[in-house]
């Protein structure tokens, strides 16, 4: 029993997309599927040459935010979306009826339809693969060359992520919606 979350030291991201590849390999995401479970976003730098705002062009890795108050879990009519014992928001494909309400309700656009099973899927922090095998890291974290991702138990005060969140400023996405995301972006 844990309460898993992830911190993203996003300014270290070099957009190599190794995390997307590792995620696909580990979790059997469809071949050719782009930006499904996780993705790296980037923006054009703001401003006009030579006064470009370099800071605005940071790469932003993202994925399901594993919210504590997940709108997708709330709207699911069959409990196909649920919180597991580790606080991870999961999807039980057997119960999914593909009403797509969760896709509409997720403020983070983190859900997609797996065209093989025709059910909604999303990141589950490798719960069915690495965590199920007893490992304590996710594929994206494990492969990241610049150590952007720090995954761990938020309830353990001595875990790396807990220490990091105590010692560094961070923010969450769309905080005003009250979803309490468990993906933290480090400043």
């Amino acid at each position: 029993m844990a309460n898993y979350g992830m911190a993203l030291d996003y300014k270290n991201c070099i957009n190599c997309k190794a995390c997307e590849v590792a995620c696909k390999e580990e979790n059997g995401v469809e071949l050719g599927a782009e930006k499904h479970r996780i993705w790296v976003g980037g923006n054009e730098p703001d401003g006009i040459w030579p006064l470009l705002n370099i800071a605005s062009a940071a790469f932003m890795p993202s994925q399901c935010q594993h919210c504590e108050n997940a709108p997708c879990e709330e709207v699911c009519p069959t409990h196909a979306t649920y919180y597991d014992d580790n606080g991870v928001v999961r999807v039980d494909a057997d119960k999914c009826i593909l009403c797509s309400y969760c896709m509409n309700a997720c403020p983070y656009d983190a859900r997609y339809v797996d065209s093989r099973t025709m059910t909604v899927d999303k990141c589950n922090f490798c719960s069915e693969t690495r965590l199920a095998r007893g490992e304590t890291t996710t594929a994206c974290q494990n492969t990241c060359p610049t150590k952007v991702r720090i995954f761990g138990d938020l309830d353990d005060p001595n875990s790396e992520i807990s220490v990091l969140l105590r010692t560094r400023e961070h923010f969450t996405l769309k905080t005003h919606l009250g979803t309490k995301p468990k993906l933290f972006y480090m400043l």
Binding site: V75, H79, L98, C99
Partner: peptide
């Protein structure tokens, strides 16, 4: 439109999502 209507009939009863407006509506 519903991807799995038979699954819906089963899990609507077996595993009802009482906080879901779609469940109540249906």
């Amino acid at each position: 439109e519903i991807g799995h209507p038979v699954t819906m009939l089963i899990y609507n009863i077996v595993s009802p999502g009482l906080r879901s407006a779609i469940w109540w509506m249906g």
